[in-house]
């Protein structure tokens, strides 16, 4: 396995992957708990329009992607705060319009030799030193702000109305949070691709949710899972020659299935143990049941 680290591009890929592996679930925890998991997917699809825009304008797609994702995020939050439409309907609206814009822009940019596949499914192996720097800086900023507002974001996720009555600046924190989501989506798309970025934000959290009874544990467990799948997904893809983004997400999904199966078996066993325990304690009930039979 050591040979992986002898390639510069592989080291950069791993560093980018690990950063995104921490970042995505850290933001995703709050998204999932607010039942806003679909938000990541929406912003990811919209950011495809940013990629095409960058191509047409001749600017780095990293910059335009970020701009478009931030604009979409603010638009979604304003519509949501107005409270006249359902959250998921707003997401469907923005996602389909954004995707349509992306398709039209890509068709206009055809002459520019756009590598659409690379953006759709990620191109972590082509992460250059400049890209890596951007990912690390964005990662540090997002994680720093999440740490600073951790307990406020938890309260808003648990009970937004009560958080308001406690005097928290809920509206401003909501705007800040959605900007953090947009930042995260735009850098994570580089690693796992636009189509898969929401998987990395959502699935580790769902897996951790099956195994957590406290928010603290949910948070750290999600992060640990995110880092683990990003590392081993990359290593596996290197050895198997598979697509890195897809390998990472498949591994994440596999861990979810394992956790789901494991907790189901554990619960069934608990139930059986409880049933036998009550039977032993209450032999009369069992006896009555038998004698009153046919």
């Amino acid at each position: 396995m050591g040979e992986i680290f002898s390639y510069d591009f592989m080291v950069r890929a791993l560093l980018a992957g690990l950063t995104v592996g921490v970042l995505c679930p850290a933001v995703g925890v709050f998204l999932v708990m607010r039942r806003y998991a679909f938000m990541a997917d929406t912003l990811a699809h919209v950011s495809l329009a940013g990629v095409a825009l960058g191509m047409i304008l001749g600017i780095s797609p990293s910059v335009t992607t970020l701009g478009v994702a931030l604009a979409a995020a603010l638009g979604i939050e304003r519509l949501r705060a107005a409270g006249r439409l359902h959250g998921e309907a707003i997401l469907a609206l923005v996602m389909s319009s954004g995707l349509a814009l992306a398709v039209v822009l890509i068709s206009l940019a055809r002459g520019f030799n756009v590598d659409v596949m690379g953006y759709l499914f990620g191109s972590i192996l082509t992460v250059g030193p400049g890209d890596l720097l951007l990912i690390l800086v964005v990662g540090a900023v997002v994680l720093g702000l999440l740490a600073f507002f951790y307990k406020e974001l938890f309260f808003i996720a648990f009970d937004e109305e009560c958080a308001r009555v406690t005097g928290l600046p809920v509206d401003r924190l909501n705007v800040l949070f959605i900007l953090l989501v947009a930042l995260t989506v735009s850098v994570a798309a580089r690693v796992v691709g636009i189509l898969l970025v929401s998987a990395l934000m959502v699935i580790p959290v769902l897996t951790a949710q099956l195994l957590s009874g406290s928010f603290r544990r949910l948070f750290w467990f999600s992060l640990a899972l995110g880092v683990t799948v990003c590392f081993w997904g990359l290593v596996l893809s290197y050895h198997l020659g598979t697509a890195p983004g897809g390998s990472i997400v498949l591994l994440t999904a596999a861990l979810f299935v394992l956790a789901q199966g494991g907790t189901a078996v554990w619960r069934a066993r608990q139930r059986r143990r409880l049933a036998t325990a009550t039977e032993e304690k209450l032999p009369l009930v069992k006896l009555e049941g038998r004698t009153s039979g046919p």
């Binding site: 307990k151 406020e152 938890f154 406690t166 928290l168 406290s214 928010f215 949910l218």
Partner: peptide, 27 residues
């Protein structure tokens, strides 16, 4: 106002009642 699937302990929920006074960045 409450989703029973939300993993949070009694202590985590109750201490949230002091967050307004505590201010951000402080545990």
């Amino acid at each position: 106002s409450f989703d029973t699937r939300f993993p949070a302990t009694v202590e985590e929920v109750v201490s949230a009642g002091r967050y307004g006074r505590l201010g951000p960045g402080r545990r």
